[in-house]
């Protein structure tokens, strides 16, 4: 357990004055993750909400070296930074221990940046990749991504007389990453601060690539009041829609099991207006299908964690 009162004594690596939406949990996640190491950190940020809102020229909220290159290439960019570090260290031009960290959204990770991420994982660069998964292209105005859940409304998965939101299930990216057999993979949530901090710390301490997929509720995209971000994230965890687990050198550990307190998915859906069509009686089959999918995925994680 990290003592928050001690943690609050540490320097902030992302300062105020950024223009993220009120209540967006992404910057809370960034603040917490960047406090999980005492080493200097270089951040690569994919195009997205965090990138545009924290660095509107001539202002930057970042107090650590930070680079944005493009949307789909943050893993390749950090590969280059890390390679430069290794080369300069070998030549004796640098001696300190530096950590390398990527922040990218689900668009920049699940979709357009997947190839770049896969390549960097396979090459084994020493870096931490944090996906801030807000389940859609929110920066461009709420379009569906492969991370958008089944049944969710977005501007490109509209609810109409025939189609009722997104027709496909959310991509299981954490498993895709796990298939690269990198030393550390985890799923986390801002609602579970201790768990997220512990995972970030482990990721920084890992030699080689580490990946953390963090659910990041989106006030305008998921459509809920701004003060509920952490509550919405907690319901995703308690419904087992977003299991908290980690894979250390191939070994699965389930970090949190709500047990009898597991809530039905509808309790998570009903808080978000992107799912409001699912509250209608005629759409109950969609909720049921999503519930079955969530249950199957949850059972699978539990089974993998038992071994």
């Amino acid at each position: 357990m990290v003592n928050l009162r001690q943690l609050a004594k540490k320097e902030e690596r992302l300062g105020p004055g950024h223009r993220m939406c009120p209540g967006c949990p992404q910057t809370m996640i960034v603040r917490l993750v960047t406090k999980a190491t005492d080493s200097p950190v270089v951040v690569a940020n994919a195009t997205g909400c965090l990138e545009v809102s924290t660095t509107i020229y001539p202002f930057s909220a970042w107090r650590v070296p930070w680079i944005h290159n493009a949307f789909e290439n943050s893993a390749a960019t950090i590969s280059g930074v890390e390679a430069a570090y290794k080369a300069l260290k070998k030549k004796g031009k640098i001696d300190k221990d530096v950590k390398f960290l990527v922040f990218a959204g689900d668009g920049g990770t699940y979709d357009i940046g997947l190839q770049s991420l896969s390549g960097a994982l396979e090459r084994g660069h020493n870096f931490v990749y944090v996906c801030l998964d807000n389940e859609g292209y929110m920066n461009t105005g709420i379009q569906r991504s492969s991370a958008t859940p089944f049944g969710a409304w977005t501007n490109t998965s509209q609810v109409g007389s025939i189609l009722k939101g997104k027709q496909e299930f959310k991509k299981d990216l954490t498993s895709v990453v796990a298939s690269h057999h990198i030393p550390y993979v985890a799923q986390a949530s801002p609602s579970n601060v201790q768990d997220l901090f512990k995972k970030a710390k482990k990721a920084f301490e890992t030699e080689g690539p580490a990946f953390i997929n963090v659910l990041a509720p989106c006030v305008p995209g998921w459509k809920y009041p701004s003060e509920q971000s952490m509550e919405i994230a907690r319901l995703a965890v308690d419904s087992c829609f977003w299991p908290l687990y980690e894979i250390e050198n191939g070994k699965y550990t389930l970090n949190y099991d709500p047990g009898e307190k597991k809530i039905p998915i509808i309790k998570w859906l009903e808080k978000q207006k992107r799912f409001r069509h699912l509250l209608k009686p005629e759409n109950q089959h969609i909720v049921e299908k999503l519930q079955q999918h969530v249950d199957a995925m949850w059972e699978n994680i539990k089974r993998l964690s038992e071994n």
Binding site: G17, H18, F59, S60
Partner: peptide, 9 residues
């Protein structure tokens, strides 16, 4: 670094 602090949100 961190000069966004001057932007008063």
């Amino acid at each position: 670094a961190g000069n966004a602090e001057r932007y008063k949100t």
